[in-house]
Design a protein around this nucleic acid. Structure first.
Lengths: 147, 147
DNA sequence: CTTGATGTTTAGAATGATTCTAATTCTGTA
DNA sequence: TACAGAATTAGAATCATTCTAAACATCAAG
């Protein structure tokens, strides 16, 4: 599963960001490519440890951060930090402003939800759909307000 | 902002679930309705404390869990638990199987992403879109596999 | 109106993922 | 070879959340 292609891609992407190619980074990436599941840092740590017993959990975290930064890997965890709550029960998406950290509600027409739901292959039944945007929102004032 | 309507709705929903209406639950709900932001449990704790100084953080968590359970409040935090990583760079959504805990990739046509993006009001610019489904997926085998 | 049974709240301890720190090791280049 | 910056490491620290056990409140039955 680890191919010269993948190794090269990794080395190339790292170089693009001015970063070094290291065994640890290679192994973490390799371990990730080897499976179709969505492992946690801890699970990867266990898997990589058999090849490189001296690797530390912190390094696995570091490598993952690097891989995400190089756009070779996607972090499938949506919000870092504490859970937030809202009393808005209408179907809506959330927009996270990268600059201010604010979360805004975005109304979602029912028709769009149907269309999104329609991409599910047969046999899948969703009880909820969560849509999160991330980016820049229009500022009302010069200074940022909270959350 | 706290109206008889809201109080009644709360009492009603609680009753529907066989739960009691308590000052703590009322205050947490009220505090949540009072603002359009998306407060954390900790922020709500601070706000509610001025009305009921003896309330504890654990109670705020409990009340929020109750409100979510009664469908009066939505928890805007997507994944509890550790971050997961995937090397699939194609645009795709994630489907969380409620039964097995597995995460499956769902392909997303570019056209759908454009449509989703189109719901953003003017001035919003998203750099990423995350779509998470939750529900039941078709089982291949009788027993569940991991993650 | 007493007595349970059960539901709630509370403070503080425990958990668990992640990040930080400071020391060590490595690598590429002068 | 030797230095500077990058990377790794182990372990401590952080922080949101959950757990625990005890105290409290409330309702229904006698």
């Amino acid at each position: 599963m680890i191919t010269t292609e993948n190794s090269d891609a990794l080395a190339q992407r790292l170089a693009d960001s001015g970063l070094r190619s290291t065994p640890q980074r290679g192994l973490v990436y390799e371990a990730l490519l080897k499976t179709r599941d969505h492992p946690t840092a801890d699970e990867l740590y266990v898997r990589v440890k058999s090849d490189l017993p001296t690797i530390s959990l912190a390094t696995v975290y570091n490598c993952l951060e690097t891989l995400v930064h190089c756009h070779l890997v996607r972090a499938v965890n949506f919000e870092r930090g504490p859970t937030r709550y809202c009393p808005n029960l209408q179907p809506h998406a959330h927009f996270h402003d990268d600059d201010t950290g604010e979360t805004h509600d975005i109304d979602l027409p029912a028709s769009l939800l149907h269309q999104v739901n329609a991409v599910l292959p047969g046999g899948y039944h969703s009880s909820s759909i969560e849509i999160i945007f991330r980016g820049k929102s229009p500022h009302r004032r010069a200074s940022a307000t909270k959350a």
